[in-house]
């Protein structure tokens, strides 16, 4: 478990990072918290010629609030998401999810942006940003662009990022009036990859559910939007019958595979149970 040989460069700013990448003939990987790339190197699953360290680029750091919403720099460690008052106030779903991400030592170093660009389908944050309809700000050789979280996660460990592009920040839009959110996951041990997890965002409208975002993680190749379950909620009062209908609809939304310790049917059952618990929790807060 020793990494194959690689070169290392510390980038001072974004242009330098992009320039280093441009001169790498595509054989470079950006390094931030290192919690995906370092184990991957040690297991020899990846062997890039160059690691470009972007962890100290000021433009990628910090949490700020503006008219467009909460802007979270890509190199923000998970531990900050857990503790930052701006995040707690303006994106509580993210703070709630951060509690479930690994353990303190990991949360101190691993970065929010690194987590999103890895696109591990078992990871919590991709589901949360999708549920919150966040926008991802990207810098690349062709300039800056913005990608909706909805369009960012394409496949297993695959995102809409083009080679050389760097995730700069995540913009979380201001909460809709009356918005209710909940996050939970079922894991065998605290901090483990979940058997199933979900982020829920509901916006009431005239006494019924106006908008519903339900995104599961650990049940497919990407964070999985449960479209049928959402449809079962929209336009309905959040009552027991509606919740039951949404839980039943999950079977249309998710087609998990078998894994060595969790058969697909069991995982699907757990997804329904979890959604029911989340919706009942939201029901308790429904004005």
């Amino acid at each position: 478990m020793k990494a194959p040989p690689f070169a290392y460069r510390l980038a001072e700013d974004l242009p330098q990072a992009l320039d280093l990448y441009a001169r790498s003939a595509g054989d470079a990987v950006y390094l931030a918290g290192g919690h995906s790339i370092v184990p991957s190197l040690s297991l020899r699953l990846q062997a890039p010629a160059l690691l470009i360290d972007i962890s100290r680029i000021a433009a990628l750091a910090g949490v700020s609030l503006g008219p467009e919403g909460l802007r979270i720099g890509a190199t923000t460690p998970h531990a900050v998401l857990l503790e930052d008052p701006l995040v707690a106030t303006h994106a509580p779903l993210l703070a709630e999810a951060a509690r479930h991400v690994a353990h303190p030592a990991i949360r101190n170093r691993a970065t929010f942006g690194g987590n999103l660009v890895l696109a591990d389908p078992a990871s919590e944050f991709p589901a949360v940003v999708r549920a919150l309809r966040a926008e991802l700000e990207v810098e690349g050789p062709e300039g800056a662009r913005q990608i909706a979280a909805e369009d960012f996660f394409l496949d297993l460990y695959t995102t809409a990022l083009q080679p050389g592009e760097i995730l700069r920040a995540v913009l979380i839009p201001p909460p809709a009036p009356g918005q209710l959110v909940a996050f939970a996951e079922l894991a065998r041990r605290q901090g483990d990859f979940a058997m199933v997890g979900a982020a829920v965002r509901l916006v009431p409208k005239a006494g019924v559910i106006g908008t519903a975002d339900i995104v599961f993680h650990s049940v497919g190749l990407t964070p999985m939007r449960a479209v049928a379950a959402e449809a079962a909620l929209i336009g309905q009062a959040l009552d027991a019958a509606t919740i039951a209908a949404a839980c039943a609809a999950v079977a249309q939304d998710l087609q998990p595979g078998d894994d060595p310790v969790l058969p697909a049917a069991t995982r699907l059952h757990l997804a329904g149970v979890l959604l029911g618990r989340l919706l009942r929790r939201v029901q308790g807060e429904w004005a």
Binding site: R188, V261, P263, T266
Partner: peptide, 14 residues
């Protein structure tokens, strides 16, 4: 006694 085995004993899942 994994969750899947406990659920299977309860008739849920294979």
């Amino acid at each position: 006694m994994t969750p899947a085995r406990i659920l299977a004993a309860l008739g849920i899942g294979p």
